[in-house]
Design a binder for these strands. Sequence first.
DNA 1: AATATTTTATGATAAAAATCATATTTCAGA
DNA 2: TCTGAAATATGATTTTTATCATAAAATATT
Lengths: 142, 142
Amino acid sequence: MLSNSAKYAFKSVLFLALNSNAQKRIMAKDLAESIQAPKAYVSKILQELSRQNIISSVRGPKGGFYLSTSNLDGYLIGIVLAMDGEKKLHSCVLGLEKCNEEQPCPLHDVIHPTRSRFLAYLNSETILEFTKKYPKDDQFFE
Amino acid sequence: MLSNSAKYAFKSVLFLALNSNAQKRIMAKDLAESIQAPKAYVSKILQELSRQNIISSVRGPKGGFYLSTSNLDGYLIGIVLAMDGEKKLHSCVLGLEKCNEEQPCPLHDVIHPTRSRFLAYLNSETILEFTKKYPKDDQFFE
DNA sequence: AATATTTTATGATAAAAATCATATTTCAGA
DNA sequence: TCTGAAATATGATTTTTATCATAAAATATT
Ligand code: FES
Ligand code: FES
């Protein structure tokens, strides 16, 4: 469903949303440790997220990553699109070229409603809205 | 969600269910062509499915693969388990170790009901039941 | 019995995903 | 302005998945 990269990206953004802001940045090293993921790998992902303006960063000492208020208004879908692209999300469970109501594969009716709901959710919920539901000390990063 | 192998396996079994029986077997070569998949790859998958008694086969000239009546009583879940194993199906969307109602990740509530339904379906429907819903000439293999 | 045809067993290669490594750039603070 | 701490750019390595290739075993037909 989601690639490993997308999973780490999601966790990273969530962690930043709960624990950072423009004044309080978080270093890749610490973030990686917090979400229990390989540091070098996470670093690369953070760089990509930053490049795509999903998260923010400043270099040098006292630098690190954080979510700007503008970042917080981004939709959840952006995170996974940044990592996996459009393709993976919409493709047929059986890998058929066209996946739609007119030409559904045998599993389409079973899987499609569920996936649509998931996608609709990611499309409609912002990072800010999402994190509001979770207390700052929520330990879901294991 | 499903690996490429699982997708091909699914298509293969479906095709065999609709087009083969103990008397009328289908060669790997023809099957591969029918479902538009690389022959050598499909061959390997068929061999594995056969080894796991999900499909049947006979060697030599006039040989090929087919579904026995006993094979037709197998549940759909068997096909994907044979290829991807238990792990992939039950793992958390975010890759957390324990995925359950007590310790749900932020996406658990969104994704879990949907996935449960998909799994329940695969667990409760046999290949025979499944294919009954589809006419023999159904062209979903593209 | 010989032959041709097919699966089976096994492993090699290719492509993609995950992971690691490092030199370069930026910037805060002394 | 120098130094060290951080991100950034870039690319190498490792692991996994997908794909291909082929010799061996089985069997129907002659
Ligand atoms: S056609 Fe296969 S999931 Fe839609
Ligand atoms: S805990 Fe993440 S999907 Fe269940």
